[in-house]
């Protein structure tokens, strides 16, 4: 019975670790303190004229610019255009890149044949293809989504493949000896096993899809934040540029937080600390 008590103790310890306790609250307090500190440093830099005031306006000016963007009705349609295109690009990348990546992981011969070409494609700066996409697809949402997709799809492909390759040999043997067919291996072993890597790809892919979309907008587009940034930079109206960048970053962060919450619920089985 001694061994049973020993095991029960181990379970209790794990449960306490998972709850976290007072430590979590402390983290949030520190987190919320960062923006005011950053604002303070910014204001100080402005007042001390550490940089050209045209290039680094005061926080107040940037706030006024934000209000002005909101009032003039310029902000929301363009923001929706950019974020919408980025989300569509992300979704397409996930839907296309993930199964392809899982298959590449499951079929080493396919990787041997296609790998060098995929790596070559991946090392091309796809943002440089933006002019091609604009000529092919026009200046609407399609070309932006295409650029965003071309950047983010490789992240899903490579991460999904890595997730599959990282599948424990033990797990693979267990499934094999339990009589799994190829399809069962795909759905019961490889896909769930690759989920952590896929979620990592989602977070990274969000950033890169947004990057691709904004780059395409800066080049040529009917609407979007990238266009606004170019427009305001032309007359060095930097307050508006910073306002737009901060708003964009805020939305992207919110999306990442949502992703994190979904990930935490789906991947609750992961050990919180290494045993």
């Amino acid at each position: 019975m001694v061994s049973v008590a020993h095991e029960v103790e181990a379970v209790d310890e794990t449960a306490v670790r998972r709850r976290g306790g007072r430590g979590r609250l402390g983290v949030w307090v520190w987190r919320l303190a960062v923006p005011p500190v950053a604002l303070g440093i910014w204001q100080l830099a402005y007042q001390l004229r550490l940089s050209n005031r045209a290039l680094l306006p005061s926080p107040r000016t940037v706030w006024d610019a934000t209000a002005s963007l909101q009032d003039s009705g310029v902000l929301w349609p363009n923001l929706a255009s950019t974020l919408g295109a980025a989300l569509v690009a992300l979704a397409l990348s996930a839907l296309v890149g993930t199964p392809f990546g899982v298959l590449l992981g499951m079929l080493p011969r396919a990787w041997e044949v296609l790998g060098p070409y995929l790596n070559a494609l991946n090392s091309m700066p796809r943002i440089a293809l933006a002019p091609v996409f604009v000529v092919l697809l026009g200046v609407g949402q399609s070309s932006k989504v295409a650029v965003g997709f071309s950047v983010a799809v490789f992240i899903f492909m490579m991460n999904a493949r890595a997730g599959v390759l990282g599948a424990d040999d033990e797990h693979r043997r267990v499934c094999l000896t339990l009589g799994a067919s190829k399809a069962q291996m795909f759905w019961k072993l490889y896909v769930p096993g690759a989920l952590p890597a896929i979620f990592a790809a989602l977070r990274l892919g969000m950033v890169y899809a947004l990057l691709g979309v904004v780059s395409s907008e800066i080049l040529a587009s009917q609407s979007g934040v990238g266009q606004l940034i170019v427009s305001y930079s032309a007359t060095l109206s930097m307050a508006y540029v910073y306002a737009l960048l901060i708003i964009l970053a805020a939305f992207a962060s919110a999306l990442t937080l949502v992703l994190g919450a979904v990930e935490a619920s789906l991947l609750g089985w992961q050990p919180s600390r290494p045993r």
């Binding site: 050209n52 045209a54 306006p57 032309a234 007359t235 060095l236 109206s237 930097m238 307050a239």
Partner: peptide
């Protein structure tokens, strides 16, 4: 026009 607006934004 572009230059004046930049000067308005603090450029020298």
């Amino acid at each position: 026009a572009q230059l004046y607006t930049a000067i308005e934004n603090g450029v020298c």
